[in-house]
Design a binder for these strands. Structure first.
Lengths: 230, 230
DNA sequence: TAGTGGTCTAGACCACTCA
DNA sequence: GAGTGGTCTAGACCACTAT
């Protein structure tokens, strides 16, 4: 047959939406009609529409039909950066320095997040990441040693804890949070900024199935930016 | 037939990847083999694998086969918030106040971004967004009036500029950037924080085809967080 | 050149939800 | 109850690329 691509249909429909042919909230034709109009199988139209729906441009309901969204929910995708790659991408030489590494009883907020009992110890790490020997980011990390006991023997001077974990426990899930904070004295000292400077903070927690692996907080230098096209 | 769902297969494959059955960088079985193994059509396996590939967990190449990624490129998806919805989601009453609204010659950085000549004026807006009459965010916006002349007659007291634009030019593309900054005196005054406090800044630029519509910068209160599950 | 993923088709049945 | 999207199948051909 013709081989009408789902991409072609996607673009065609996008233009018709942008042109205002179907206004905000309006019902679009059904899959069968569109398939006939474009001379292709319904499956193909379905794939195109599914894509637009996943991007939040249209809304689909069984029996209700397909509608153009009132407020197109814009989503942004960000790559969660690995610090070494960030540094090396700028052409600088990466290095990290471990300031603190010890088994410690974590504060309540952390033991709750790692789902361990408040009496249990966990591995605590403070690391400075450097680009060409200048501080680039400061990282504070807790690792649940019950979930990853092997890390106690790992040499983290070569591979950072993050990279060691990614290699050892690759396919964990997790969450991430970004915020702005004023640098405390210790953070300021670690990355060489004045106390109170605005730093961009990334918090991440990862777990495998139901056992929590690690939670980490990275303080980025002022001027750090997270960018994405829509 | 059996009706084996692509979701089922997706989950099954995920578990096998997590279990280490196929190590990092290893070749996974081809679609035909998996289809036979799970007793379903190749199309179904394809859909499951395509999903995993889109999420960056596996890598697929024609003839090369499907491989487990070395460093699973983690991506986070964020919903770009509409301030009114953010406020109303907390149960507060939304209101906004326009501090400045005038045609102005923008600074070079802005005229470049809006792709207008430095002599041209553009609409400049300063808005405070309020939750229950307490400041929630401060917004500075430039609008390219050549691209959207109708905005000059719009009543932005009812609908904020953002919402007006979304309704008028709904399906534009754009980019977004997050950063941390210290509040300047004027920002501090607008949202009622002390000067120098760390604020979370969102910059957005949107355009339709090749004509730039607007660029906006939102200063959020300290404590603002951007959260996402991975 | 051969093997693998990418995609389209035509048809079918199911699941949800509106009237 | 009926209409719409959601998904699966079985088969086919194409496009890319490793060998």
């Amino acid at each position: 047959m013709n081989a009408v691509s789902h991409k072609t249909i996607r673009e065609a429909l996008l233009k018709r939406i942008q042109s205002g042919e179907w206004g905000l909230g309006d019902l679009m034709p059904g899959e069968v009609d569109l398939a006939e109009e474009y001379g292709c199988a319904r499956t193909t139209v379905n794939r195109a529409l599914r894509g637009l729906a996943e991007e939040g441009l249209i809304e689909r309901k069984r029996k209700g039909g397909t509608r153009v969204r009132h407020l197109p929910m814009r989503q942004a995708k960000f790559d969660i950066p690995i610090i070494r790659e960030q540094v090396e991408a700028t052409g600088s030489k990466y290095r990290h320095e471990i300031l603190v590494r010890e088994e410690r009883r974590p504060p309540a907020a952390i033991s709750t997040r790692l789902k361990i009992s408040p009496e249990d110890k966990a591995l605590y790490l403070e690391t400075v990441h450097m680009a060409d020997d200048r501080p680039f980011a400061f990282e504070v990390r807790w690792v649940n040693t019950r979930a990853v006991p092997q890390i106690q023997d790992a040499n983290l001077d070569i591979l950072s804890a993050n990279e060691w974990l990614v290699r050892t426990v690759p396919f964990s899930s997790g969450d991430v949070m970004f915020s702005a904070e004023s640098a405390t004295a210790s953070v300021a000292a670690a990355i060489g900024v004045t106390e109170g400077a605005a730093v961009f903070v990334t918090d991440r927690t990862t777990w495998l199935d139901d056992s929590f692996i690690t939670t980490t907080r990275v303080y980025n230098l002022p001027g750090y930016r997270l960018y994405s096209k829509l």
